[in-house]
Simulated assay, not measured.
Amino acid sequence: MILVAGFVAYATLWPSRFDPVAWQAPPVHALDSDTRPMSALTRLGIGAGTGPETVAIGPEGRLYAGYADGTIRRFDADKATGRSDGQVFATTNGRPLGLAFGPPLPRAKQHQRPDGTSRADRTVADADNAASGDASPGSQRATLYVADADQGLLAINRKGQITELTSSANGRPFGFTDDVTVAKDGRVYFTDASSRWPHTAYRTAILEHHGDGRLLRYDPKTGRTDVLLDGLQFANGVALGPDDAYVLVTETGAYRVTRYWLTGPHAGAHDVFIDDLPGFPDGIDADTAHRGFWIALFAPRNTVLDFAAPYPWLREVIHRLPSWLKPAPAHVGHIVHVANNGHVISQRIDDRNNAYAPITSVTPAGQWLYLGSLETDAIGRVPAQP
């Protein structure tokens, strides 16, 4: 008892920059929808690296993913079954997370970052682009925009040359640039999950619940970065609605998805798109026919964390615990399909020991859904129609 009391005193009184905020977790509600197993999953690019968090489909139809070692690799999906290193397209020297293709940058904005992709990698990428036709002048969405947790918002051209676009807004540097999507007009929407904690401390940021996430917009024509929403609870995935009328952002720490209106009578306002999710929402992507969105749930909600939500002192104690004693995410693969009105259409769950989990993104492409993960060593692929 003395040791426990001493640890609690240390956890609550010893100075720390961890500053938890009291809040009330919403009740847990099971989703009322068609629930199916995550069947017929294939792992692609096994062993290429750790943590292909987001999968983007290039203009030539290949898969692009960023890894913990700072590389962005691309794969031919039909040849990547089993073990495959893919091909290094670029190296950010950071942690590339969100990826999205968009129009080329204005020529005046283009420059190569000296410490970016190596000359050898650029030579290989250049030759491969030429062989695949990706380097054709007519390719209108051949620039890869990258939300790099360490480096900020980047743009990478067809040769793998990197341009730093922005790393701060309103005088506040990005702490954890997380996801990105590109509108038809070329403007880039992206998130800063936390300005207080880096990506290596994502669990700490969520446990703290400080509300220091942001939804941002970068205009390549002007170089301006605007803050659309501030005070978000770990701003994570981002996706555009039909006709770019609104943008959605997942708030992982609040179990919800928030909608920010870009056009129409509600332009500039925001509301809740879907809330009370049964897990931590991570990536969100529009389906290929704009009939809704796919949401990746990183893990189910944790009873201990929800109980501790109103008690900052208890979360101080949890924060100070050894890593092996802290509440850990359950190993469950879970994706949810929602309609454009936020109503749940269906969900797929895999809670087996060998489940592909945690799932951080769902990228629809034709007959397939490509799954990303922060911790696995492969890209997942499942049929779009189970």
Rank of each mutant, 00 (worst) to 15 (best):
T166Y: 03
T143V: 09
N129Q: 06
L165P: 01
Q112F: 00
F174Y: 13
Q112W: 01
S139K: 13
Y145K: 05
A130T: 12
A169W: 02
A120E: 11
A131G: 07
A120M: 03
L154F: 04
D128V: 13
T166V: 14
Q140Y: 01
R113G: 03
G175Q: 07
L165R: 04
R158D: 06
P173W: 02
S139I: 10
R141K: 08
F174D: 01
R122D: 04
D121Q: 10
D128T: 13
D128C: 02
D128F: 12
V146H: 10
P137K: 03
T166A: 15
A127L: 13
A169Y: 02
S118R: 10
A108D: 12
D126P: 00
L154P: 02
N170S: 15
K159T: 15
R172V: 12
S136D: 14
V146C: 05
L165K: 07
Q140L: 06
T163I: 04
L153S: 04
A149P: 01
A135Q: 12
F174A: 00
A147V: 10
D121K: 05
I162E: 02
Y145V: 00
K159A: 14
G175K: 11
I156Y: 04
T123L: 14
S118L: 04
S136A: 15
S132L: 12
K159S: 15
A169I: 02
G160C: 04
T123G: 08
S168D: 13
R113C: 09
T163W: 01
K109D: 01
